[in-house]
């Protein structure tokens, strides 16, 4: 028996919108810890890891660990039927082949339930070891999104370099080149608008902008984004989900042939 009641239902709507273009089908793993997901894109270049901790739900019942395979496009269709202010409850039975999404309007005058078919998904879980990163950049998520969008109109790849000077995003295309440097900026009142650069060593890595732009679909989940970089490791782009957990995207770097 599974019953998860999420008062801020819009969070689930946003999470699915953030990952559905990257991943088609995924197993949602439910345990006492929370609801989690790990899935790779079809080319195995990018990975999304999601955690919604049990404490973040108003009611959380998960009698045994279960893995529920869902088509994210179908899930998105159903969750789009929930209002942004709705409370969403996810219900399932052990061994069942469907899951039910129940939507309650804030004043309880409309209650809907949508039953979705589950699917068997063979998914490979990767072990992601804890790593010491050479540099960790925290910046406003909207700023990161803007940079990725702007640069992708000029080039296909971006070089992200962190030095004492700041974090530099560089691209090159047929029409020319672009460099955007963001310096550390802690002096403003609002911490969400700060850019904070922790650097142990300078690092410079190349990534496909197509994937980074896809990750920025999570921008509305968090005011800030954390970019963790180490040479010869996938970059981690993390959006914290207030009081609940995170959505992390891992992207393998490109290397010179």
């Amino acid at each position: 028996m599974l019953e998860l009641r999420l008062v801020q239902g819009s969070l689930l709507k946003k999470v699915i919108e953030a990952i559905k273009d990257l991943v088609t089908d995924a197993n949602f793993d439910c345990s006492a810890t929370g609801l989690s997901l790990q899935a790779m894109d079809s080319s195995h270049v990018a990975l999304v890891a999601l955690l919604l901790r049990s404490e973040g739900f108003e009611h959380y019942r998960c009698d045994r660990n279960i893995s529920m395979g869902m088509n994210l496009n179908n899930m998105s269709k159903m969750l789009k039927c929930a209002g942004n202010d709705d409370i969403i409850t996810i219900k399932g039975d052990d061994g069942g082949d469907t899951i039910t999404f129940m939507f309650e309007s804030p004043n309880q005058d409309k209650i809907s339930d949508f039953e979705m078919k589950l699917m068997d998904i063979d998914s490979e879980h990767l072990g992601i070891p804890e790593a010491e990163y050479h540099a960790i950049v925290k910046m406003p998520s909207s700023e990161f999104s803007r940079i990725c969008k702007d640069l992708s109109s000029i080039g296909d790849t971006v070089v992200i370099s962190v030095t004492k000077e700041g974090v530099k995003f560089t691209t090159r295309g047929d029409i020319g080149t672009a460099n955007i440097v963001c310096r550390q900026n802690k002096t403003i009142d609002k911490p969400d608008e700060a850019t904070i650069i922790e650097m142990n060593e300078p690092v410079s890595l190349t990534f496909a902008l197509r994937y980074l732009n896809s990750f920025t679909k999570a921008t509305s989940l968090s005011e800030s984004v954390t970019i963790s970089l180490s040479s010869d490791l996938p970059v981690v782009i993390e959006y914290k989900i207030a009081d609940m957990g995170y959505i992390r995207f891992y992207l393998a770097p490109k290397i010179e042939d």
Binding site: V45, H125, L126, P129, T206, Y250, A252
Partner: peptide, 14 residues
Amino acid sequence: KPKQQILSRFFAPK
């Protein structure tokens, strides 16, 4: 042109 690497080069299956 730089070559795209895949994740299994960095992370092993669990």
